[in-house]
């Protein structure tokens, strides 16, 4: 039960951060990606804020024997740069650049009730299922991230 409350709380804080920094807005994200247009640096500050916290907090936490509420850390251990990693990240980059949605903002911005958000989510889930149905040789483990 405590684990479920922790997951809900973590999601709440994460989602509030996405909204506060306007990362839920595809137009804002596209304005960042548009380096040669009217560039909007917001995403740099968002990544910066997230990484300042992460870089300080993750290391001492992962040095502990186990998380507070679970038996072990489930964290990727691979270090090899593989074709699926690079090809997958490239495909993701194209999709992200076409519309301005990555998974977190796409899922959480359903709050705004824009029909195309739901269309994007349905297509995203279909894409994820496709990868599951057609396993690629050497593909990253699904638990990776």
């Amino acid at each position: 039960m405590a684990k479920l409350i922790a997951a809900l709380a973590a999601g709440l804080v994460f989602g509030f951060g996405l909204a506060l920094s306007d990362m839920v807005n595809p137009a804002r994200v596209l304005a960042f990606l548009d380096i040669f247009g009217a560039w909007d640096p917001t995403l740099v500050y968002v990544m910066g804020g997230g990484l300042v916290v992460g870089l300080i907090a993750f290391r001492p936490t992962l040095a502990r024997a186990r998380p507070l509420l679970a038996a072990r850390f489930v964290v990727p251990t691979r270090n090899d740069i593989t074709l699926p990693l690079v090809a997958g990240s490239s495909l993701f980059g194209i999709g992200w650049g076409l519309v301005g949605y990555c998974p977190g903002p796409a899922v959480s911005s359903v709050v705004f009730g824009e029909p195309k958000t739901f269309g994007f989510l349905a297509a995203m889930l279909a894409g994820m299922l496709l990868v599951r149905l057609i396993p690629l040789p050497g593909a990253s483990a699904p638990a990776a991230a």
Binding site: M124, G127, V131
Partner: peptide, 14 residues
């Protein structure tokens, strides 16, 4: 199209 690419790409790229 973008949704499909994001779904496929993020799972493939982990």
């Amino acid at each position: 199209v973008a949704g499909l690419l994001v779904g496929i790409g993020t799972r493939m790229g982990g």
